[in-house]
Amino acid sequence: MDWLFEFIQSWFSELMGLVSQGSKRIFFGYMLSATLIAVVWLMWQRQLNCLAAFRWLFQGKIWWSSSSQSDYTIMLLNQPIMLLLSPILLSKLALATTLFYALNDWVSRPLWFSDIPVFWVSVIFTSCLFVVDDASRYYLHRLMHRWPVLWAFHRVHHTAESLTPFTVLRTHPMEGLLFGLRSVLVQGFLISVFVFVFADRVTLLSLLGANVFNAVLNLLGSNLRHSPVPISYGKVIEGWLISPAQHQIHHSQARQHWDKNFGAFIALWDRLGNTLEYGSNSQELTYGLLGQKPKEHQLVTLYWQPFTSSWRYFWRSKGKLISTNNKTHVTSESQ
């Protein structure tokens, strides 16, 4: 029984970590700053008083909808599932170490880099990590929409009909694994290259235990991307940074919004990939998938159906991965 006790303890600790660690998106500090930003924005843009802004922000029909309730359930259940799945994933350290050895075998280290001061080495490393990490997120996210085999899992996230910051955790564990693998590959590669070039002079510029860029952007309200508050940055900034309104467009049911704004923080990738759509402070959108039925929020549908859908597609298409006619934003029944 000791293992069960330890497992439950780890589960609880992981759940607590979601709100107590600055590396997590729903860290309470980020939630607090997002709330403040949202209230101020509602008072400014919608001319609401403070109390009304709070009431609008925390309206029960959003936070306690069947969609949100399934978000909370997924959040609770995904923690132990990810605990069990984590050991099968390639270790970031193992990859970084292997690549580091390989680099030493293949390439001779350029010495002129040793003139760069330690602080600037850290700035370059932290920036590279942020940019490459974000680019890889964009690309994987795009694949999630383009490959029906992957879409079967990613659509779980898109069946959310009301958006709250907890919707960020409405993710199928298989997608969690893929994003975990992406993180291992990107970070393992960059760490090995930087340590190869700069040896022990590399450090991460961090804030609240996270990459300083991620932490700052999270403090500036990135959690509002999954919220009913359509904050737009205006066209100039939205060409560079994804605003909450832009990500809400990504979740829109409207056909013209399908497969737009895949980016996490940086909008440049969407510009380069012709998938950028600007947001608006006054936009009113319907979230979820066309033809979606209430059973989409049931646990069996959320966890099991992606496997059957993915397999069915894979079988029908004889292993062909890329869909030529993009119909991803409809329910599997409609495909």
Partner: peptide
């Protein structure tokens, strides 16, 4: 060792977070 320190600072754990 610096590889391990950097991995630690970024976290080895996997999270089921979306974009």
């Amino acid at each position: 060792a610096n590889l391990a320190q950097l991995v630690d600072s970024l976290g080895e754990a996997m999270a089921a977070e979306n974009d």
